[in-house]
Amino acid sequence: MVQRGSKVRILRPESYWFQDVGTVASVDQSGIKYPVIVRFEKVNYSGINTNNFAEDELVEVEA
């Protein structure tokens, strides 16, 4: 279970941040499909630095 402030590695192959490390900004408990919002240092092609992920697409590298 990841929690706010954890450092996580992204396992979603189609993601711009695949294999990159980001910080968990928040975790939604309402039961949505992609409840974990992760914030990154670098921006993607659209200038965005956050994205939603499912918990099984993340691996915690640092608490």
Rank of each mutant, 00 (worst) to 15 (best):
R12E: 01
Y45L: 15
K42N: 10
E57P: 03
D20A: 10
L58R: 01
V27H: 04
E57Y: 05
F53Y: 07
G47I: 03
N49C: 14
V43H: 12
V59D: 09
E14T: 14
T50E: 12
V43W: 10
D20R: 07
F53M: 01
P35M: 10
G5I: 02
K7Q: 08
S46F: 14
S6Q: 11
V38H: 00
S15Q: 03
M1H: 14
S15L: 04
N44R: 02
Y34E: 04
L11T: 07
V59F: 08
K7H: 08
D28A: 09
R9A: 05
N52M: 10
N49P: 02
K33Y: 08
L11D: 05
Y45I: 12
P13S: 09
K33M: 10
T50Q: 12
V36S: 00
Y45E: 15
Y16A: 02
G5E: 04
R12H: 03
A54H: 07
M1P: 11
Q19D: 10
M1N: 12
R9C: 13
N44W: 08
M1A: 13
V2Y: 14
I32E: 09
S30W: 04
Q19G: 14
I37M: 15
V61P: 03
N52V: 06
Y34D: 02
P13D: 04
V59A: 12
N44I: 03
V36W: 09
E41H: 08
T50W: 15
K33T: 08
E60C: 14
R9S: 06
Q3Y: 06
Q29Y: 14
E57D: 06
S26V: 06
V59T: 08
V24A: 01
E57W: 05
V8Q: 03
I48K: 12
Q19C: 13
G22A: 01
N49G: 06
Y34T: 03
V38I: 03
F53E: 00
M1S: 14
M1R: 15
M1D: 07
G31M: 09
N44V: 05
Y45P: 15
N52Q: 09
D20T: 09
R39Q: 12
S46L: 15
K7G: 05
Q29L: 14
E14P: 01
P35I: 10
N44D: 14
N44P: 05
K42D: 06
Y34P: 02
V38P: 01
G5W: 03
G22E: 03
E62P: 13
R39L: 11
E41A: 10
G5R: 05
Q29R: 14
Q19E: 08
S15Y: 04
G22V: 04
L11S: 04
E62G: 13
E57T: 02
A54G: 08
Q3C: 12
G22P: 04
A25L: 15
I32L: 10
S46C: 15
F53Q: 00
V27S: 04
V8A: 00
V27A: 03
P35S: 10
F53A: 00
E55L: 15
S26G: 14
N49A: 07
V24C: 06
S30D: 05
A63F: 12
G31R: 07
V43S: 14
V2H: 07
A25H: 11
I10Y: 04
K7A: 05
V8I: 02
S30E: 06
I32A: 12
G31I: 11
N51L: 06
E41G: 06
S46G: 09
V24D: 01
V61Y: 05
R12S: 05
V2C: 12
V38M: 00
R4H: 07
T50R: 05
E41F: 07
I32Y: 06
V27W: 07
G5T: 02
S46M: 15
I10A: 00
Y34F: 12
V24W: 03
E14S: 14
R12N: 09
S46V: 11
S26T: 07
I32T: 13
E57F: 01
Y34K: 07
Q19N: 14
R12G: 02
V2Q: 04
I32D: 09
D20I: 09
A63K: 11
G5K: 02
G5L: 02
E55G: 06
G47W: 05
S26A: 13
V21T: 07
V8W: 02
F53K: 04
G31Q: 10
R39I: 14
N49K: 05
N49E: 03
R39T: 11
R12K: 08
E41Q: 09
L58H: 01
I37D: 02
Y34H: 09
V61R: 02
D20G: 05
A63E: 12
Y34Q: 04
F53C: 03
Q29T: 14
V38G: 00
N51M: 15
I48R: 10
S46E: 15
S15D: 06
F18C: 05
V43D: 07
S30K: 06
P13A: 12
V59M: 13
V43K: 13
N52W: 10
S6M: 14
D56L: 06
R39V: 14
V8D: 05
S46R: 11
S15W: 03
T50I: 11
V24F: 07
A54T: 05
K42V: 07
V61A: 06
Y34A: 04
W17P: 01
V24R: 00
V24T: 02
S6L: 06
V27N: 02
F40T: 00
A63R: 12
E62N: 11
S30T: 13
V36D: 00
G22N: 02
A63M: 12
Q3V: 12
E55W: 15
E60L: 15
V59S: 09
E60P: 12
Y16M: 03
I37L: 15
W17R: 00
A25W: 12
V2S: 03
S6R: 08
R12Q: 06
I10S: 00
T50S: 10
F18N: 01
N49Y: 09
V2E: 01
F53T: 05
L58S: 00
T23L: 08
R4V: 15
R39M: 13
F18V: 03
A63T: 13
E62A: 11
K42G: 05
G22C: 07
N51P: 01
R39N: 08
I37G: 04
V43C: 14
Q29S: 11
I32H: 10
R39H: 09
F53S: 01
V38Y: 00
W17F: 02
F40V: 00
G31L: 11
A54I: 03
E55S: 09
A54F: 04
T23H: 05
S26N: 11
I48H: 14
F40K: 00
Q3S: 11
I37W: 15
Y34S: 03
V61E: 06
G5Q: 02
I37V: 14
G5F: 03
F53G: 00
N52C: 14
N52L: 04
E62S: 11
R39F: 12
Y16I: 03
D20E: 13
V24I: 04
A54W: 04
D20M: 13
V21D: 03
A54S: 10
P13W: 09
D28L: 13
Q29F: 11
V61T: 06
P35G: 09
I37C: 15
K42L: 06
V8S: 00
N52F: 08
Y45V: 12
T23V: 13
K33S: 08
S30L: 05
D56V: 07
I37K: 15
F40D: 00
F40Q: 00
R9Y: 08
V61H: 02
M1F: 13
D28N: 08
N52A: 15
S46T: 09
R12D: 06
Y45G: 14
E57M: 03
V8P: 02
V38A: 00
Q29P: 13
K42A: 07
V2F: 15
G47P: 03
V36M: 03
S26M: 12
D28Y: 05
R9E: 06
G47M: 03
R39K: 13
P35A: 08
N52G: 10
Y45T: 14
D28H: 05
V61S: 03
Y34L: 07
K7D: 05
P13I: 13
E62T: 12
A63H: 12
F53I: 01
V61K: 03
S26D: 14
G31C: 14
G31T: 06
T23C: 12
D20Y: 09
N51G: 15
Q29N: 12
Q19S: 07
Q19P: 02
N44S: 09
S26F: 14
L11R: 04
S6C: 13
T50P: 01
E41D: 12
R4Y: 06
V8G: 02
E62H: 12
L58F: 06
I10F: 04
R4P: 15
G47Q: 04
N44Q: 07
E14A: 10
F40W: 01
D20C: 14
A54L: 04
R4K: 14
L11G: 02
P35T: 09
S15H: 02
N51K: 05
S46A: 15
P35H: 08
Y16R: 01
F18P: 00
Q29E: 11
T50Y: 14
P35C: 13
K33F: 06
F53D: 02
K33R: 13
Q3W: 04
D56N: 12
N51V: 10
V43G: 08
F40C: 04
